[in-house]
Amino acid sequence: MVAITLALLSAQVKPMTKLELISSIEGEIAITVTPPRGWHTYWLNPGDSGMPPKITWKLPAGIKDPEIQWEAPQRIEADGLVSYGYEGPMRGVATFKIPANFKHQWKATATASVLVCKTECIAQSVTATMKFDRTKAASIRELRSRLPKPATGNWTLLWNDGRPSLQTDHPTLIKELFPLQGTVLLHEQPIRDHRPAQGQTHYALNASDLATGAPKEFSAVVRDSEGNTFWINPRILP
């Protein structure tokens, strides 16, 4: 019965999630994962529910798996739960280290394993092979410009008796925060409030119900009041 139900659900969401791999310069591939209309995919930390995307590569010998940077996610609310993901195409850039002596034309094939959800969820895997297209150079540059950049300035995560806060001299106001680790901050409302503090801004944060103390590691994507996105890797003070 379960198998029949899943088959019916799959039939309802045709066409399936699409994967596109476009390269315009050596060593860089733009990845676009597009779920069926009305469905969404998940970020690296999916939030309250979901599954992080997994990309597996088939590459020539001598080329290793790339680093992938994804666009900042959006907040998706359903049934009182908050997930982090993408309601439209999920875009990222994979950067490969190509050995200097690598002379011949190379080809990459990737399989994206994603969970797509609407009112129900379906796990899908989709495979594509890289297409080389120099005419896409400008659009890939534009995509790269939209990826979260490493934040400048000083960032400190304070964990005072189970009450976390973030202190920074970042010049613009942080409006959204997406923690990479899923057990540190409350997905529903990571930032509680903020106030100026001696030339800096102090953000009071909400700890996750799953937090058991100051995290050993913490990083996040933040979106500021101007819509810019940054990766932060704050110093942690327990």
């Binding site: 999916p46 009182g80 129900e120």
Partner: peptide, 13 residues
Amino acid sequence: VTTSQPYGCSVKY
């Protein structure tokens, strides 16, 4: 290990 991030479909309340 006393806590971990649950994963899966959201509970369909």
